[in-house]
Amino acid sequence: MTFTGNPGNEVEHALRQVAPQDYEAYERLLECLARGHVWMLLWQGEPGSPDAQYGNMEVHGSRYAPAFTSEGQLHESRWDRGWEVHAVREIAATLYPDQWGLWLNPHMQGGGVGVPYLDLRRIVGGLDKLMPGPVRVGEPALDDSAFWAVLTAELGASGVVRAAHRAYVEPALGAPRIVIGTRLADNDPATVDRMKQAMARAAGMLQGIDISSVALDDPYDPVAKWMREQTRSFL
Rank of each mutant, 00 (worst) to 15 (best):
W100N: 01
A92D: 00
E27T: 02
G126K: 10
E90M: 10
Q44G: 08
V214M: 01
A146N: 09
L173Y: 03
P106K: 04
V38D: 06
W39L: 08
L173H: 07
R183S: 15
A190I: 00
V137I: 15
I180S: 06
A67V: 15
E229R: 08
T94Q: 11
G114Q: 01
A202G: 03
P222W: 07
G111W: 04
M205H: 12
E76S: 11
T4A: 15
W226T: 10
A203D: 10
W83R: 09
V214T: 15
G45S: 09
Q230I: 11
L130S: 04
V137Y: 08
Q197W: 11
G82S: 08
L29A: 10
A25Y: 13
A149L: 11
N6I: 07
A167Y: 01
L120D: 03
V223S: 02
R89P: 15
E84H: 00
L104P: 00
V223D: 01
D119M: 02
G174H: 08
R89G: 10
H13S: 13
R177D: 05
D98R: 12
N105D: 15
Q109N: 11
T2V: 14
V59G: 00
L95D: 02
A167T: 08
G125D: 04
V135H: 00
A149W: 01
E170K: 09
M195L: 14
P140E: 03
V88L: 06
I180A: 09
L130G: 00
V85A: 05
P97Y: 04
D98Q: 14
G5Y: 00
L155N: 01
L216H: 05
A167V: 07
G138R: 09
M199E: 03
V150R: 14
G111N: 05
Q21L: 11
A175C: 11
N9S: 13
A153Y: 07
G8R: 12
G204Q: 13
G174I: 09
Y54T: 12
A163R: 11
I91Q: 03
F147S: 09
R35F: 13
L216P: 09
M1P: 04
Y54C: 15
A146L: 11
E139W: 07
K196N: 14
P66R: 02
Y117V: 00
Y26T: 12
L74R: 05
V179A: 15
I209D: 01
M199S: 03
A14L: 05
W83Q: 02
N187V: 12
E76I: 07
S70K: 06
D186F: 06
M1K: 03
V59T: 10
T182E: 12
D144W: 03
E229T: 09
D98W: 08
D210W: 04
V160M: 13
Q73D: 01
A172C: 14
